[in-house]
Design a binder for these strands. Structure first.
Lengths: 220, 220
DNA sequence: TCCAAGTGTTGGCGGTGTCAACATCCGAGG
DNA sequence: CCTCGGATGTTGACACCGCCAACACTTGGA
């Protein structure tokens, strides 16, 4: 039933999962545009059009792959967060935010294809994979970021009034850096330069969270 | 010679430009994936394969379209910069940076397709369109950003030591916000929410540039 | 004048997504 | 135990695509 059958049987057993796994492999190698329904079917050992019994559309398969990618990104972030062990609560909260950002960008660079497919917009689908912002739970990377920022408020590093909206600014910075390094004009900067740039930006984020003692006067 | 000829002539006259223009239209409507060589040739009134006399590859045509997009983005930014007229030099410099960022994001939202194609990475090409970072001139949006930051240093708002590397952080933030709004999980937030988020982030950038009077102590 | 390079055309190959019709298997109801 | 219907996989076809090869026309300079 659940496991793949041995010899040649008319029914595959769990084609859907097999297709998604093959799709993940293909996306890893060639990116979202490098995955073809027919090719996936060929790899799995099934003839074309079989996929249409499990996905109405190519985009639907891509979305399933994107879901895997988003989950992997989330788990990668969770591992980074768990690895932070600093006794001082303020330093701990700051380091957690920094490591979350670093993990995000690292994942993007390590898993180019998965990252790209995870954030490729599929207009035919009603919601982006694995993260409905209006949703109350926030299971994905956005939720991790929100938790980190809430921690920063709790330990007194980030002032509550500066907290509002900070999640989007942080997310944009980290996501944008990933995109610029991945397929943007920063594609082929040397690795050492890239890590320096990333470090600088993470520091800027850390500093910009600390808004308490500042006498900044806004524009307008 | 240069202008399009009237009736039916074997040679088109300036096929390359016509193809790029048709490609820009197609990208505007359907995005980078929606442009097909054969379709473009059909629109221009020329038969398929004619494009291969001017572009060795589909990617090469896409790159030409991307160049148009990048130029449009640059001009849009220049217009925004020119519109800032504040007598106070500090306010003026700060407003210019803010407006440049707002213009970048606005362009991305207004010209979805052109923006996407401008930043789509074409691995077959040796350099990203219209912006070689190692180049000395920096004609594109990155150059505008650098100029704005230099101005901020000149007027004394941004400290010279905080200047280094700030261009990448700012760029990443603005670019990431564009991507999240364009094809990311922020695709369908209401317009008013989007503008609020953008404003908040631009303020955060402005505030984070002002690092002079802070007693921020770095991590590690 | 004529030839060679530049440009556009026709035809074809292999690939793709998707639809329609058909084949096979499995499990529930008799 | 049998049957039959739904789920699943297959074959075939259509239209489209990128790209290659061979051919046709046009034009400018030797």
């Amino acid at each position: 039933m659940s496991t793949a059958s041995a010899g040649t049987s008319y029914h595959h057993g769990n084609l859907r999962t097999a297709l998604v796994e093959a799709g993940v492999d293909a996306v890893r190698e060639l990116g979202p545009d490098g995955v073809a329904l027919r090719d996936l079917a060929r790899r799995v050992g099934v003839s074309h059009n079989a996929a249409y019994r499990h996905f109405s559309d190519r985009d639907e398969l891509l979305a399933a792959i994107a879901d895997v990618g988003m989950t992997a990104l989330t788990e990668s972030g969770a591992a980074r967060l768990a690895a932070v062990s600093d006794p001082d609560p303020v330093r701990r909260a700051r380091l957690r935010l920094r490591e979350l950002g670093r993990g995000y960008i690292d994942f993007a660079r390590r898993e180019r294809g998965l990252f790209r497919v995870a954030f490729a917009g599929y207009p035919s689908l009603e919601s982006a994979p694995a993260m409905d912002l209006a949703d109350s739970e926030h299971a994905g990377p956005f939720g991790q970021l929100n938790d980190c920022l809430d921690d920063l408020v709790r330990v007194g590093y980030l002032s509550p009034d500066a907290r509002a909206g900070a999640e989007f600014a942080c997310w944009a910075a980290v996501h944008g850096m990933s995109m610029l390094l991945l397929e943007g004009p920063l594609q082929k900067v040397p690795d050492e330069v890239a890590t320096a740039i990333i470090d600088h930006m993470l520091t800027a984020i850390d500093r910009s969270q600390w808004a308490s003692g500042s006498d900044y006067e806004p524009l307008d």
